[in-house]
Nucleic acid binder design. Structure first.
Lengths: 331, 331
DNA sequence: AAAATAATTGACAACGTTGTCATAACATGC
DNA sequence: GCATGTTATGACAACGTTGTCAATTATTTT
């Protein structure tokens, strides 16, 4: 039924191997014959069968992306993964991974053992699951972390300048006259949150502002966490004059709670965020943010992974991209 | 290097075909021999090579999801697709599809021709690209539309009660005393927008409120479109007392513009939306919305697709799910 | 002009499964 | 005990590609 390499060979009056050479752009084919083969391919509409190629080459041309949750971060990430993977001629298989479920671990294990994927990208918080990491490491499958919470071990990763970003934003807030800056920080045992906290501290120290531990509130990096932490911070006496949320979602939660409390932004309290996903500029007032270079991170990560898969030496195994500051109405 | 069916056969002292039968749970194997084979499989750690199986069976156990953009709608959708696909033992291959680019058409065409996928799900607005639809139809590949903009032809689809949802929300607004309700409608040539418009008209007619064409503004179903349309509507004299945005994103845009104009919501203008994705309840005030049953839609669609792939008769080829109304602070 | 080298081409095996068919072993009915 | 039917098993081809290696032809060198 379907058109195979044999049909093309017959039409072009040559061997199947020659057709294979033309298709794979190998050398050692006379231009004239090459043209004849290309014409035959056009006429027949031949497309190589990937399953056969995979079988003989023991490669799948598939990259697996492990995601934990569904959100703005993930969807931006995915869309960039698809774009870069596409350029490199890889299909993208998306798989959810919930560290608690042994089912998802089994699934990933099968994917690896059956040679169904050539490489694997993990996104936060998957990189913090030791079982998963161990599984991947033992398999020897190429893999790369995107923005790991826990960049330990030798796994290559791409991340951002958390320290510098937080430092710069904090300094901006100080320049605007703020001395009491509340920090909605994530988990202190996660590297990015910790680095951002250090950046915040460093900026305060530089400007000789004493650090008030009351202004540092641990919170979940999501809408509810941000909302709760804001309540705690605004109950202080005196309350902070600025809030710095270490994630987008918590910034959105903060703004919501401030609105509920009837506290005008930025008149009474300024608000800044680390992240800059869609929601930051789709709510009023726009939230000043440390722009997280997610698309750049993904691009580098996928290219790094493809390099690993194809055996070419990647230029480096740890890449840290710079952040930038975008000021909007909330400060 | 890797363990094949031959290794297992040697260990269990039988033919490879027998091992194949055991692996695929076919009948005609003596219990005693079956046990021996199972033991051999355990000992060797054998896992069937999927590429070989795919080659010979011309099946991939992969479902392709075509997405156009990255957003809240898409990420909710994806995460449900992964969940349901997972239950059915299918891998999910995600592919972006931009109707304008012939590249993406080529990519989809390759996926189909190379037997890399068993079935295909399209999401809006991919279903409106006649080239794509024609391509899929000619290939005979099982496929299903999710919430199509253009449900023509015989393609099975799953969608929601657009008419009823808009009718109910409009009626609610009328009950709240609104007579001048501005409508931010999408494209009039798209079925869901049109049905929602009809629902809106029907509710007004029912309550004997004359329809004012000035209050119907065509707009893109996104943030900017909503913002622009709101400006036009609020310039009317007198302006509407309520706005009904036919998508989430345009509602967010509307709220942003109202904030910019200093018009308080809901005091001066009420705002309602059709959709209810994340942003609706993460902005202040929460936006009253017609809840779009996206997860249910996806679930039905994937199950329908799997039924088509596996040849079992799907229960029905067109499914329409009911909507519900959630009132929040914006009305 | 002969020899050496390089480029071009094809025959055939291999990849690891499943499907087809033939055969062997066993059970059943008379 | 024989014919018949059923169950169990295996030999071998097929799937459509790429890799290996040998054979042929063109090009360069001596």
């Amino acid at each position: 039924m379907s058109i195979t390499i044999r049909d093309v060979a017959k039409k072009a009056d040559c061997s199947i191997k020659t057709v294979s050479r033309v298709v794979n752009e190998e050398s050692h084919v006379r231009p004239e014959l090459r043209e004849r083969v290309l014409a035959a391919i056009r006429e027949t509409g031949y497309v190589p069968n990937i399953s056969a190629r995979r079988l003989v080459q023991k490669r799948s041309y598939v990259i697996c992306l492990l995601l934990h949750a569904a959100g703005s971060f993930q969807s931006t990430l995915l869309s960039k993964v698809l774009e870069v993977g596409y350029e490199g001629n890889y299909d993208i298989l998306v798989q959810t991974y919930y560290p608690i479920f042994s089912r998802s671990r089994k699934k990933v294990s099968d994917l690896i053992q059956q040679n169904r994927i050539d490489g694997l990208v993990t996104t936060p918080p998957c990189d913090s699951d030791p079982f998963l990491i161990d599984l991947i490491n033992r398999s020897g499958l190429p893999h790369v972390h995107i923005a790991p919470l826990n960049p330990t071990g030798g796994t290559p990763y791409v991340s951002a300048e958390d320290f510098a970003g937080a430092y710069q934003m904090t300094e901006r807030l100080i320049m605007l006259g703020h001395q009491r800056i509340g920090l909605l920080l994530g988990h202190r045992n996660q590297r990015p949150s910790l680095d951002r906290l250090f950046g915040y501290r460093a900026a305060l120290e530089k400007h000789q502002i004493p650090i008030n531990e009351q202004l540092l509130v641990d919170s979940e990096n999501n809408f509810v966490g941000g909302s709760t932490a804001t309540q705690i911070l605004m109950n202080l006496n005196p309350p902070p004059t600025a809030l710095f949320a270490l994630s987008d979602e918590s910034a959105a939660g903060a703004l919501y709670r401030l609105n509920e409390l009837g506290i005008p932004v930025p008149e009474k309290v300024a608000l800044a965020a680390f992240g800059d996903l869609t929601i930051s500029h789709q709510i009023w007032p726009g939230i000043s943010a440390v722009k997280y270079p997610l698309e750049g991170i993904v691009e580098q990560a996928i290219q790094m992974l493809i390099a690993l898969v194809e055996g070419t030496q990647p230029t480096s195994r740890q890449v840290i991209l710079p952040t930038s500051i975008i000021m909007r109405g909330s400060t």
